[in-house]
């Protein structure tokens, strides 16, 4: 079985967002870059499948030199090899899906795993777009995955609980928190990863679908007020304020 895991480098969740001088992108100064947490669940699942039934796991990222950190980490965690597609991995999801599809097509992957969304961009679009471009099955926001003989069974999170999706491999499966508990890299893994090389290719040309023309910070919320008194008085004051001022009830 051949598994491709697509990983995206994203700003850490503690990042305070600043808008760059161009007015439409993130100011990269002081940003700590990490692997998107949902992609970590995807990678962990691939490694568990490899450990269980055996598989070749290829880690892939789209980006520049900095994205190599994500791939080095993936190799340390147990990916067999890594591919960097040189291109704009932070841009439009449709363009990134085209780049990955152009690479993955005809390489015989049985399973492509990635996060259900890239943290930050929050598009939740690359996975299903990739599935469509490759003409394969998809299952998104997955908290449980079982593989059969050329088939998959996945539990997917929905509003009212979850649902079971069944389909044929090859498939693109996007991971949700709860799928597994990602491991930490072992010293042995980190040492072994140092001996592995990252294959570097130019990403195939892609057509963007959606473009960001402006990036802005949300407006400041007006100052609120503190409610005084003992607990009962505070509770009374709040309920009254919500009813009469905010008219929530």
């Amino acid at each position: 079985m051949k598994i491709l895991v697509a990983l995206k480098q994203v700003p850490d969740t503690e990042t305070k967002i600043k808008v760059a001088a161009d007015g439409r992108s993130l100011d990269p100064a002081d940003v700590k870059w990490i692997t998107s947490p949902y992609d970590e669940y995807a990678l962990e699942e691939a490694i568990r499948i490899k450990e269980g039934k055996g598989a070749e796991v290829v880690a892939l990222s789209v980006g520049g030199d900095a994205a190599k950190d994500v791939l080095k980490n993936a190799l340390a965690l147990g990916a067999d090899s890594a591919v960097l597609l040189r291109g704009d991995g932070q841009g439009d999801a449709f363009a990134v899906a085209q780049m990955i599809a152009a690479y993955a097509r005809d390489k015989g992957y049985d399973l492509i795993l990635c996060g259900n969304k890239g943290l930050g961009g929050d598009n939740a679009a690359m996975g299903p777009m990739l599935a469509e471009l490759l003409g394969v099955a998809q299952a998104n926001v997955i908290v449980k995955l079982e593989l059969g003989d050329g088939t998959f069974k996945a539990e997917r999170e929905i509003e009212s609980g979850s649902e079971i999706v069944e389909g044929a491999l090859p498939a693109v499966i996007t991971a949700q928190k709860g799928l597994n508990e990602p491991r930490y890299a072992s010293l042995k893994g980190i040492m072994a990863a140092k001996k592995k090389t990252i294959e570097e290719l130019d990403a195939a040309p892609a057509t963007a679908g959606a473009l960001i023309s402006a990036l802005a910070l949300p407006p400041e919320r007006p100052a609120g007020r503190k409610l005084e008194g003992d607990s009962a008085a505070q509770a009374q004051a709040l309920i009254q304020a919500l009813k009469n001022e905010a008219k929530v009830f």
Binding site: T15, G121, L211, I212, A214, L215, A216, L217, P218
Partner: peptide, 11 residues
């Protein structure tokens, strides 16, 4: 974007 830390105007 960034879970509401910023807003992107998209065309």
């Amino acid at each position: 974007v960034y879970a509401g830390k910023a807003f992107a105007t998209t065309s």
